[in-house]
Amino acid sequence: MDTASKPVIRIAYCTQCNWLLRAGWMAQELLSTFGTDLGEVTLVPGTGGIFEITCDGHVVWERKRDGGFPDAAKLKQLVRDVIDPNRDLGHSDRKAKAEKPAG
């Protein structure tokens, strides 16, 4: 299987803050949703309060910039928007559409 052309997710997390379990859970959620559409999901230990998720080098979430941590549905939407914007995420998308104000 050629994984070289598939998206790569990197989750950098702070070991000082004990965010390994959170990072692992988010990796599991992404792998459960996107499966073999991803080339790899890598956990990258760091320090200094880092919690950053990138997809092919594009920052999809950064704790300080985005204010905390994404929930699973939001993270899946952000990754989907980078790797396959037309993909339907089922209940995650329906929930997000229901929460958007009419405008």
Rank of each mutant, 00 (worst) to 15 (best):
T36R: 08
D37E: 14
E62I: 04
R65P: 09
D66V: 06
M26D: 13
D71T: 09
G46V: 01
P45R: 04
A96G: 06
D81M: 07
W19K: 07
K6S: 01
A72L: 04
D71R: 08
F34K: 03
R80Q: 04
V59I: 15
V44E: 15
R22S: 07
Q16W: 10
E99C: 07
L78V: 05
V8P: 01
L43P: 09
W61M: 01
M1I: 00
D2Y: 00
A102I: 14
D2W: 01
D81R: 04
K74N: 11
V8S: 11
D56N: 14
L38H: 03
C14V: 03
K6I: 03
S92N: 13
G68Y: 10
A23W: 05
T3G: 00
V44G: 06
K100G: 01
L20N: 08
G24F: 05
T33F: 06
R10I: 02
L43Q: 12
P101Q: 13
L78Q: 12
R87N: 03
L21A: 14
N86W: 03
T47A: 12
P7N: 02
A73T: 12
K76F: 01
D84S: 10
D66G: 03
R94M: 09
R65N: 11
G57R: 06
G103Y: 09
I53V: 13
V8H: 15
K95R: 14
P101D: 10
A102N: 05
A98M: 14
V41I: 06
E40Q: 14
K97W: 12
H58R: 15
G57M: 03
L31Y: 08
L78P: 08
T47M: 10
T47R: 10
T54S: 11
Q28I: 02
Y13S: 00
L75F: 11
N18M: 11
I53R: 02
E40V: 00
A72V: 12
A23S: 02
T15F: 01
V44N: 13
A12N: 07
R10G: 02
G24N: 12
R87C: 02
N18C: 09
L43M: 04
K6W: 00
V79Y: 01
I11P: 01
I50M: 11
A12W: 05
L75R: 11
E99A: 14
D56K: 04
P70C: 00
L75P: 10
